[in-house]
C-alpha cells in the first residue's frame, strides 16, 4: 500500500470533514434548540462565500496586502451571514413558532430556494474565480505534496473554532442556557431564560461558522457559484444526522467520518460514486443506530 497516497486521502478527508463540520454545527445547534431542520442553512454558507468574494474583489483594487484582504473579507462575510441568518429566523421561522413542525420545514425549504435564486439573479449562474489570498506557508514546503496551505488553514481554523465553541457551550452562562433550552425549553422559560434571545444567538453562531466554512472552501477550491450551498448543505446535514442531530460533538464526529468515507471511497474505489458513499454510509449507520453515532434517543414523556 502506498503510504503517501493514503496520507493524502486522509488529509483530504480531514479537510472536507472540517468544512462539513463548520456547516453541520449550525444544523445541529438549531435543531437542538427549536427542533427544526434549517434547510436554508447551506445558503448561508454560500452567501458567506459570495460576500467574501465581493469584498476581496473590491479591496484588491486598493493594492492591499492579500492576507489583510483575506482577514477583512472573512470577518465581514461572517458579519453579513450572521445578519442573514438572524433575519431569516425572524422572517421565516419566528411567525411559525408553535405551529406544526412541518410548516416550519416547508418555510425553510422555501427560504433556501429564495436565497439561491436571489444570488443567481443578483450575481450570475457562472462559476466565479476566487482570488488567491492565502500565501504558501514556507514551513509546509517539505510536505506540500501531502497538505496544501489552504488545507492547513482549514484544519487550524476549524480546530480553533471547535475549542472556542466547546468553551462557550460548556462553561459560559449563555452556553449553559443554550443547553438547558434544548433539553427543556419550557423549564428554561420558568427560570427566566429568554428563549427568543437564545434562538437568535444560536442562529448567529451557526451562520458565522457556516460563513467561515464558505470562505475557507472558496479559497481552497478557487471558485464558487450560487449552487455550492445546496450540495454542501445536504452533505453537512447528512453528517449531522450521522453523528446524532442535536449533538455538537456528534456533528463534528459525523463530519469527519463522512469526509473520510468520501475521500477514501473516491481514492480507492471510484470517484464516480462520491455521493453514493456518503449516503450508503448514512443508511448503514442509521439501521444500527437510529439516533446517530452520539445521538440521544428521543425522550418519551409519559
Amino acid at each position: 500500500m502506498d503510504l503517501s497516497y493514503f496520507f493524502e486521502l486522509f488529509v483530504g478527508g480531514l479537510t472536507r470533514g472540517s468544512i462539513y463540520a463548520l456547516i453541520a454545527l449550525g444544523y445541529t445547534m438549531v435543531y437542538g434548540i427549536i427542533k427544526l431542520i434549517n434547510f436554508a442553512h447551506g445558503e448561508i454558507y454560500m452567501i458567506g462565500a459570495f460576500t467574501a468574494l465581493i469584498i476581496a474583489s473590491v479591496l484588491s483594487f486598493t493594492g492591499m496586502n492579500p492576507v489583510l484582504i483575506f482577514l477583512i473579507a472573512s470577518v465581514l462575510a461572517i458579519f453579513f451571514s450572521a445578519a442573514y441568518g438572524v433575519t431569516m429566523e425572524k422572517i421565516a421561522y419566528t411567525p411559525l413558532r408553535g405551529s406544526q413542525r412541518l410548516s416550519a420545514l416547508i418555510s425553510a425549504i422555501g427560504m433556501s430556494m429564495f436565497l439561491q435564486n436571489y444570488v443567481l439573479l443578483a450575481q450570475t449562474s457562472d462559476f466565479l474565480p476566487f482570488p488567491e489570498l492565502v500565501p504558501d506557508f514556507k514551513f509546509l514546503k517539505p510536505v506540500e505534496h501531502l497538505i496544501s496551505s489552504t488545507s492547513f488553514l482549514i484544519l487550524i481554523t476549524t480546530a480553533i473554532v471547535m475549542v472556542l465553541l466547546t468553551y462557550l457551550i460548556k462553561f459560559t452562562r449563555t452556553g449553559k442556557a443554550m443547553r438547558a433550552t434544548s433539553q427543556d425549553a419550557k423549564m428554561a422559560q420558568l427560570l427566566g431564560i429568554n428563549i427568543s434571545r437564545i434562538i437568535t444567538i444560536t442562529f448567529i453562531i451557526g451562520s458565522s461558522t457556516a460563513a467561515l466554512g464558505g470562505v475557507l472552501i472558496s479559497t481552497h477550491i478557487g471558485q464558487l457559484n450560487f449552487y455550492i450551498g445546496f450540495i454542501a448543505g445536504i452533505k453537512a446535514f447528512v453528517a449531522a444526522v450521522l453523528g446524532g442531530i442535536g449533538s455538537i460533538p456528534g456533528a463534528v464526529l459525523g463530519s469527519f467520518v463522512l469526509g473520510w468515507t468520501e475521500s477514501f471511497g473516491t481514492g480507492y474505489i471510484s470517484s464516480d460514486y462520491e455521493d453514493v458513499f456518503a449516503f450508503l454510509f448514512l443508511i448503514i449507520i442509521l439501521i444500527f443506530r437510529p439516533s446517530g453515532i452520539l445521538g440521544r434517543p428521543e425522550n418519551k414523556k409519559v
Binding site: 449553559k176 443547553r179 438547558a180
Partner: peptide
C-alpha cells in the same frame, strides 16, 4: 423538570 443532561451544579446555576 430537571435538565437531565446538565449536572446538579449546572442545574443550580440555571
Amino acid at each position: 423538570r430537571i435538565f437531565p443532561y446538565l449536572s446538579v451544579s449546572e442545574n443550580l446555576d440555571m
